[in-house]
Design a protein around this nucleic acid. Structure first.
Length: 424
RNA sequence: GGAGGGAUGGCCGAGUGGACUAAGGCGGUUGUCUUGAAAACAACUGUGGGCAUACGCUCACCGGGGGUUCGAAUCCCUCUCCCUCCGCCA
């Protein structure tokens, strides 16, 4: 949610923002917002004056002794109330329309986010390591997995249809090892581990910026107000809803493992092979609440933490900065981290690290005080995957495969693999 | 799932239609006193919105939403959450 006051005072900044996001249709919505805002303030001026008058007169009536005069006043008040009711109704309508419009405006990109027309304009910042070379033809994970009994696609489909799979034996264990290792790494990096609800209420999903825009990409319960989380970012954003954090509480570093549920309403044939894109996947997420002036640095720190995860796994990765057309709805600036998967021959996006500014904090109403008695301010929030599991699993399997079809378990994961060094 | 009891400010807690401008206490901030501290005393101490250059004025908020009334923390409806008991369950 953008600050209405910002829209009022700097409408051109906001219009420029939606243009560079390649969403020019929103420009007219900014003008609509400005008109509604003016209308709202005019209405408030009138109705609040009437209410002030009503409050005074009501007290007067309470003190009046003369029955006839009292009745006359009451009758007069009834007429005033009709006017107040009518105005209140108009205010409510304007408020609702204003809220709907504000809800669909995306965040303003950071000035350092490069302008671009699409994902082809994302900027490659660096590549760490060389794509691994093999003296044999490396297999894609969809062949390695079933061959070693790690992935069972048929039974996944039997249970839940397309884009579902079963991990079994050392495959399931390897994923669990990755999750446990990542969480422990993040704890060492200073994050507090959280175990969160995997279903959350509408207002929480709204607060993170997924509603109303991404409604179609989410699973929700038909009877209760529950949404299956598409990422731990949603419940983490909601943790401090309606709270004013005490001085000294920031920064807060959280990490959490959750499954993620996404409807993925994309072309039926795209990315169906393997476990790259499913309706359910696991992810370890990092999240930071900090003071506004700290968020630039926090973004770099979080990016380093995500990179560290790739590096310690011995994976070749590259870092991209997303352009204005490709950053998410809530984001101001985003780095994507991609790892090289030699079997399927692709760079796989395993992490997306974003500075959201105060956009989510406004939506979810989380504030903080710099010192006792100071005015509450909105903190900045950042989120980053550390990392998405199926794609990390793909990269590990494909990079650590050997000529005989076995897979070496990366050093750092062995404590969670019961000492298994090679999966055969 | 059933029955009953609750939800008031940072915290505790009073408040069953008009002085609620929410009592009182605790906590907090500032001041007086003190060499300093404690104690005592005094003042201040919520959030959001509108108006105003400003001192400030004003509206809304007593779990959420709706209603009754000239007037609601208080009465009515409804939802949510918490507590107690029963049932069921991992």
């Amino acid at each position: 949610m953008l600050d209405l006051n910002l829209i009022r005072t700097q409408p051109d900044t906001v219009k420029h923002a939606v243009r560079v996001r390649q969403d020019p249709a929103l420009v007219t919505k900014v003008d609509e917002i400005l008109a509604l805002d003016q209308q709202r303030r005019d209405l408030l001026k009138e109705v609040e004056a009437l209410k002030a008058e009503r409050n005074l007169v009501s007290k007067e009536i309470g003190r009046m002794k003369d029955a006839a005069a009292r009745e006359a006043k009451i009758a007069e008040q009834r007429r005033v109330n009709e006017r107040i009711d009518a105005l209140d109704k108009q205010v409510a309508e304007v408020d609702a329309r204003l809220f709907d419009l504000l809800s669909v405006l995306p965040n303003i990109p950071d000035p350092r986010t490069p302008e671009g027309a699409g994902e082809e304009d994302n900027v490659l910042l660096k590549t760490v390591g060389e794509p691994k070379t093999f003296d044999f033809i490396p297999l894609p994970h969809w062949e390695l997995g079933p061959r070693l009994g790690l992935i069972d696609f048929e039974r996944g489909t039997k249970l839940s249809g397309s884009r579902f799979y079963v991990l079994q034996g050392a495959g399931a264990r390897l994923q669990r090892a990755l999750i446990a290792w990542m969480l422990d790494l993040h704890i060492r990096q200073g994050y507090t581990e959280m175990y969160l609800p995997f279903m959350v209420k509408s207002d929480i999903v709204f607060g993170a910026g997924q509603l109303p825009k991404f409604r179609d990409n989410l699973y929700h319960d038909a009877e209760e107000d529950f949404w299956m989380v598409p990422t731990a970012e949603i419940p983490l954003t909601g943790l401090h809803k309606d709270e004013i954090l005490e001085p000294g509480a920031l920064p807060k570093y959280y990490c959490a493992y959750t499954p993620c549920f996404r409807r993925e309403k994309i072309a039926a044939g795209r990315d169906v092979r393997g476990i790259k894109r499913g309706h359910q996947f696991d992810k370890v997420e990092m999240y930071i609440f900090c003071r506004p002036e700290e968020s630039d640095e926090a973004l770099e720190t979080m990016r380093e933490h995500a990179e560290e995860t790739c590096a310690q796994l011995g994976l070749t990765y590259r870092v991209k900065q997303l352009c204005t057309a490709d950053i998410g709805f809530s984001a101001r600036m985003t780095y994507d981290i991609e790892v090289w998967a030699p079997g399927c021959g692709e760079w796989l996006e395993v992490s997306s690290v974003s500075n959201v500014g105060d956009f989510q904090a406004r939506r979810i109403n989380t504030r903080f005080r710099r010192e006792a008695g100071a005015k509450p301010e909105f903190p900045h929030t950042l989120n980053g995957s550390g990392l998405g599991l199926p794609r990390t699993l793909i990269a590990v399997m494909e990079n650590y495969q050997q000529k005989d079809g076995s897979i070496v378990v990366p050093e750092v994961l062995r404590p969670w693999m019961g000492g298994i060094e090679v999966i055969r």
